[in-house]
Simulated assay, not measured.
Amino acid sequence: MYWMNSRRTFMKLGFFSSGVVIMNGCDVFGIVTLHDTIRVVHKDLFPKAKELNIDTADYMKIVFNHSRITQEDKDFLKNGVKWLNEEALLLFKTTYIKLSDLNRQKVLQSIAKTDWGESWIRYMMQYILEATLGDPIYRGDKNEAAWKWLAYEGGKPSPKKVYL
């Protein structure tokens, strides 16, 4: 059974680094990685986290592997990356991460006008704030930089292991 557990873990981790196929009408335009896109989106939505050296995108690995987050929610997050890139392609003929800061903001503003986009951005902000404000054991704010920035003293005792 050990190898099954290892294989399962490998497959879960592989999901986060896997590619998302971007379509241009009926043609395949390209493939982007979920992690790279989420890293740039997080920087665009909450630049202070990047400034504080908080790895909010790395925190998403926990989200995608968490047993209490529904597969439907995980699929929505993954599809949101695809739809975001399709919107970037529609507006600027390239993928989201290849755009300038200004054009990435225009793409975010465009999707925010849609029901799925508004929800997807809300989810992204929720996870950004969890990573930023959560206990360092969850790998977002490993050095308590956000806590220091906010002059916050974390709860005691701190968790000894990640709760999944």
Rank of each mutant, 00 (worst) to 15 (best):
L91T: 03
V40D: 06
K161G: 02
F10Y: 12
S119I: 12
Y96P: 06
G154H: 12
L99N: 10
H42C: 12
R104E: 05
Q126F: 10
G134H: 01
Y138W: 14
V63C: 02
N24I: 02
G30Q: 04
K82G: 01
L13V: 01
D115R: 14
F92R: 03
D135T: 05
M124V: 03
D115A: 15
T9S: 10
H35I: 11
I22P: 08
N143T: 11
K113S: 10
H66G: 04
G30Y: 06
A131L: 03
Q126M: 13
K98H: 14
A49R: 07
Q109E: 13
T56F: 00
S18G: 07
Y127A: 02
R122E: 09
L150Q: 07
N143P: 00
L77R: 04
V32F: 07
K82I: 04
D73E: 12
A112L: 10
K142A: 15
Q71V: 05
T37I: 10
L99C: 09
I121Y: 01
I38D: 08
L90K: 15
Q105R: 15
T132L: 13
H42E: 10
L102T: 10
I54S: 01
L52A: 03
E118Y: 12
R39Y: 04
G25C: 04
K48P: 00
T114F: 04
I54N: 01
F15S: 05
K43A: 06
V21T: 14
F64Y: 15
D101R: 11
V63H: 05
D141I: 10
C26K: 15
Q105V: 03
S119M: 13
K50L: 14
W3S: 14
I31Q: 09
M60E: 09
W3N: 13
Y138Q: 11
G30P: 11
I128Q: 07
V32R: 11
T33I: 00
A151G: 11
V28Q: 06
L84G: 00
G14Q: 07
R139L: 13
A49H: 05
E130I: 02
K161F: 07
M4V: 12
L45K: 08
E87Y: 02
Q109R: 13
W147F: 07
L52S: 02
V32N: 07
K74R: 11
I69H: 07
K12P: 05
L164H: 06
Y163S: 09
R7F: 12
T70F: 01
T56Y: 01
W83P: 00
A57N: 12
L34H: 04
L45N: 05
V21G: 00
G80T: 03
G117L: 12
Q71P: 06
N5L: 04
D58Q: 11
